[in-house]
Design a protein around this nucleic acid. Structure first.
Length: 829
RNA sequence: GCGAGAGUGGCGAAAAUGGUAGACGCACUGGACUUAGGAUCCAGCCCUGGCAACAGGAUGGGGGUUCAAAUCCCCCCUCUCGCACCA
């Protein structure tokens, strides 16, 4: 055996062996308990980065650990392979997105293999493959049939750099999530998935996912943004129709003195037509539309508006309310129109002050009994309170009045209690090339006609020329767009938009259970066996996007009969970022660490070990080159224990109990079993790999000490062997190559990864004598050793008899003695 | 502004259920082995005082509950994240 630990040849040897013998390939085995462990699959951007290494190292520990515990573990890997970077890179490099993508996949697959992850590679899939997206197109058609996929024209988020539409979830602070270009509003015909049909269930289940981090659930709840209130109608002065508003404060209706509308509101044009305000309104609306969304939503943006020239009537007071178009009203929320109550809403207050509109106080503070007056207000009073100047409702509390006023209006058909959500339907059309085609043909006669299921997949043509500006070549590519109407046979035009790539990632986890199934999207038997995912691991950045879409998609697949689960992911672990020099590792910060180089220098085991040891998984990990060095040093120490003692170790069997042990040997055996317990519990119950590794390090340290002690106990080597094997087995999920090698060197024929996880002997973890801490008045004063089975009274007596304790308690009255079994004695004076 | 989370040595971090604060690792210091070592091994390493045994202080700050608080409660400060004119 090599005296020095040199990972290179060891690692490639075992990787080849694992691959050849297909040890990680799994099938449905009813005799075993299944466990579906999944890490978020990567976008094939070119190379694996440290974030991936960390994510997949965490997953691999769990997968290997559970395998050894006897679970049937599904642990697949694939590629989120459609997406814009492929197009941009291909244009730049003069290649094709498909080639770029598949080349990257080849490179990255190799990187993952070099890291030794225990994937069932036979299940690998790439979402850009027609054998994958054909089923997505099928889902689309079924969703279309059920009205869950529909087309509508609306204002959508447009990124002028990416030349495509973005879903709301993909807009961060008014800018494109991908390129940070400010997003503008553009009116377009788009396909939508009706996620709002599932809004209540999506919200409801945020309370039924105990295995998810609270903050992710809260983020989803916030995103869904449920609020209960009233929908009220304000008749137009002209008598021709009403304006609908949503309000959570129907109790303030008597204080509504004007109306504010979003610039995009469809009634704006009619309301201003023929009035002196027509030109001013047109100008204002145009300006608002062109202004970028981040400017419009910026906190400091001053409230501005223009009178439309028309009025509506307050249905309670009968007062004429001027209708304004205001820049702060969002078309996207509620009805796009807001009843303005300046006394009780800060925005309306500022607006009223600016344009000199009337302010009416209708709520007073309930407790202080203070009376507010419009003249004295310096800011809106937004709290609930007691109604005043509100006709028959005066004197009521806000909470009651909200219902009472709405019900009163309901009698006149002007109001109803309603629920409003922030969540809107998921816009999935993308004006890009590298995505799954939407299987629709437009016919002048028949409209939007679905492609017949038998004709799927609608293949994305690969023989196109990309446009230098990044726009999709499909609308100009006749062989693709030219199609006959499936209904009437007349001339048609194929949909040239592609689907949002988040659609692919919304169901890949289900496809992993049966990636070769060709008689439908999902094999009911296999998907039934494996789903749901028991443990999902990935970055927090997908808290809303991917994780909400996937939850929705699973519910629709369930309702279409493809799945039987309500939720895709039973447990979710969101791992922290990898930080270096205070910043998240990124190309733009120039602080990336290349996994290839590290593997080259230290081997995969060291890289994995460091990622697991430096921080618990959910926290950010501070990268440290010296820390990596330390991880390598530890593995070298582990190696040396075996290398320097191989003959003696091989000559014996692990200690199996029986007989007296000398002190240091007995201590080593106790430490061994305590470590087995600690590591098992840390991995199983808490995913705290850092403390599990620390425990193994402690055992290694003790092994070195005991090796130094040169005991002539005949149990020495057997106990030593038991300890060394524990080190090897317990660290094997984290560092699988070195441990597999050491296992073999120790003389085992069977693979370490086919070996059962060790059980600890509870008896062996117990010491016959234990250390008890003695406090006087809560201060640590002494330590005593007592037999482990000593009774409380005996422990108390021993503590009081302790020399140091007697020194302190000398001549004083002991008031009370607290004995905590096996821990401490506190003497109170 | 709203919501969530976090503040512990020079650094990354440990301390299920309140019970020896700082395990483990990094860095640092000293020593051993060595032609040499940036390899390895041993020892030290929160602050103050002391040769030492030991004493006192210390988990962002202040108060409280308790025999006992990093941990529970109240107030304040700082940082991170998410949402943000949502009517």
């Amino acid at each position: 055996m090599e005296q020095r630990y040199s990972p290179k040849s060891i690692e490639s040897k075992w990787q080849e062996y694992w691959e050849k013998s297909q040890v990680f390939k799994v099938g449905e085995d009813e005799s075993k308990k299944k466990y579906y462990l999944l890490e978020m699959f990567p976008y094939p951007s070119g190379r694996i980065h440290m974030g991936h290494v960390r994510n997949y190292s965490i997953g691999d520990v769990v997968a290997r650990f559970l395998r050894m515990l006897g679970y049937n573990v599904l642990h697949p890997m694939g590629w989120d392979a459609f997406g814009m970077p492929a197009e941009n890179a291909a244009i730049k490099a003069g290649t094709h997105p498909a080639k770029w993508t598949y080349d990257n996949i080849d490179y990255m697959r190799n990187q993952l293999k070099q890291l030794g992850f225990s994937y069932d590679w036979s299940r690998e899939l790439a979402t850009c493959d027609p054998s994958y997206y054909r089923w997505e197109q099928r889902f689309f058609l079924e969703m279309f049939e059920r009205g869950l996929a529909y087309r509508k024209s609306s204002y959508v988020n447009w990124c002028s750099k990416c030349l495509t539409v973005l879903a709301n979830e993909q807009v961060e602070g008014g800018a494109c999530w991908r390129c940070s270009e400010p997003v503008i509003q553009k009116e377009m015909e788009q396909w939508f998935f009706k996620i709002t049909d599932y809004v209540e269930e999506l919200l409801d289940f945020t309370h039924k996912l105990p295995g998810w981090p609270e903050r992710v659930l809260v983020m989803q709840q916030n995103w869904i943004g449920k609020s209960t209130g009233s929908r009220l109608l304000f008749p137009l002065e002209s008598g021709e129709g009403n304006i609908a508003v949503f309000t959570t404060r129907a109790d303030t209706l008597f204080g509504a003195t004007f109306m504010s509308m979003a610039p995009e509101h469809p009634m704006v044009e009619d309301l201003s037509r023929g009035t002196p305000q027509e030109a001013a309104i047109r100008d204002f609306v145009e300006r608002a539309r062109m202004s970028k969304r981040d400017e419009r939503e910026a906190e400091l943006l001053e409230k501005e508006g223009v009178f439309t020239g028309s009025y509506c009537i307050n249905p309670m007071t009968g007062i004429k309310m001027p209708i304004y178009v205001a820049n702060f009203v969002l078309m996207a929320y509620g009805t796009g129109a807001v009843m303005a109550v300046p006394a009780h809403d800060q925005r309306d207050f500022e607006f009223a002050k600016k344009y000199d509109l009337p302010i009416r106080v209708v709520i007073n503070p309930a407790e202080s009994g203070k009376k507010l007056t419009a003249d004295e207000l310096t800011e809106a009073f937004e709290d609930d309170g007691v109604l005043v100047d509100s006709g028959p409702f005066s004197g009521m509390l806000s909470a009651q009045a909200r219902n009472a006023i709405t019900e009163d209006l309901a009698k006149r058909g002007l109001g109803e209690l309603t629920v409003q959500y922030r969540l809107r339907d998921w816009g999935i059309s993308r004006q890009r090339y590298w995505g799954a085609p939407i299987p629709i043909i437009y016919c002048e006669k028949c409209g939007a006609v679905p492609v017949p299921v038998e004709e799927l997949p609608v293949k994305l043509p690969l023989d196109v020329e990309l446009l230098p500006n990044g726009g999709s070549p499909l609308p100009a590519y006749e062989p693709f767009y030219k199609a006959a109407c499936p209904k009437c046979g007349g001339p048609g035009r194929r949909e040239t938009d592609t689907m949002d790539t988040f659609v692919e990632s919304s169901w890949y986890f289900a496809r992993f259970t049966c990636p070769d199934f060709d008689r439908g999207p999902l094999d009911p038997n296999r998907v039934g066996y494996w789903m749901p995912v028991d443990q999902y691991i990935g970055g927090i950045e997908h808290a809303v996007l991917h994780l909400l879409y996937s939850r929705f998609f699973v519910k629709t697949l369930r309702d279409m009969g493809y799945l039987e689960v309500d939720e895709p992911f039973l447990n979710l672990l969101t791992q922290g970022m990898v930080i270096k020099d205070g910043f998240k590792m990124s190309k733009s910060k120039g602080n990336v660490v290349d996994p290839d180089k590290l593997i080259q220098k230290y081997g995969a085991d060291t890289v994995r070990l460091f990622c697991l040891f430096a921080a618990p998984p959910e926290k950010d990990l501070d990268w440290s080159d010296q820390g990596v060095e330390g991880s390598f040093r530890f593995l070298s120490r582990m190696w040396r224990i075996v290398a320097e003692n191989i003959d003696q170790l091989k000559a014996v069997k692990p200690w199996s109990g029986g007989g007296e042990l000398s002190k240091s040997v007995a201590q080593l055996r106790r430490k061994t079993h305590q470590t087995i317990r600690k590591v098992t519990e840390d991995i199983r119950d808490r995913f705290h790999f850092n403390t599990a590794i620390a425990a193994v390090m402690e055992l290694v340290n003790q092994i070195y000490q005991v090796l130094d002690s040169k005991s002539d106990d005949r149990a020495f080597w057997p106990v030593m062997r038991e300890a060394v094997e524990a080190v090897v087995i317990l660290s094997s999920p984290m560092v699988p190559h070195i441990t597999e090698e050491l296992w073999k060197i120790l003389g085992h024929d069977r693979l370490l990864l086919e070996t059962s996880w060790p059980a600890w002997d509870e008896e062996a973890t117990k010491a016959e004598e234990i250390l008890i801490v003695v406090q006087v008045n809560g201060k640590l004063r002494s330590r005593i050793t007592v037999p482990a089975d000593a009774a409380e009274k005996e422990v108390e007596a021993a503590a009081l008899a302790d020399a140091r304790v007697r020194e302190i308690t000398e001549g004083k009255q002991v008031k009370k003695v607290v004995v905590v079994p096996k821990k401490l004695v506190n003497i109170v004076m």
